[in-house]
Amino acid sequence: MLFFNFLIAFIVGGFICVIGQLLMDVFKLTPGHTLSILVVVGAILDGLGLYEPLIDFAGAGATIPITSFGNSLTHGALAEAEKHGWVGVLTGMFEVTSSGISAAIVFGFIAALIFKPKGKAN
């Protein structure tokens, strides 16, 4: 069972990355464009109520790709909207957080303290 969960995470996570690769290679998008599109897709999927089932199914295969970032933000916004209606749509924006952003800020700051950029080939 455990092995099966790992396998599902591998396949679903890998598949989301393949979509990203196709956006970059076939449509010649920059990484910035590609990731922005995936985030929006994640948000829309959550709006349709599809992303949470995907997480239940694939675990980290769905929470690790950047699409989950759109999902978690939308999830927070929807929860507020449900509770407080029209005001909630706005306040929901202030409630939503993402551990990805906080972690990136903290570790980015620490990295700036200890590392220098490296320009070595291969």
């Binding site: 969960n5 790992f6 995470a9 591998f10 396949i11 679903v12 996570g13 890998g14 598949f15 989301i16 990355c17 393949v18 990203g20 690769q21 675990g59 980290a60 295969g61 929470t63 690790i64 790709p65």
Partner: peptide, 13 residues
């Protein structure tokens, strides 16, 4: 992309 992305997600799992 599939293999590396898959492996990163497996590590996450």
């Amino acid at each position: 992309a599939f293999f590396v992305g898959g492996i990163i997600c497996t590590i996450g799992q």
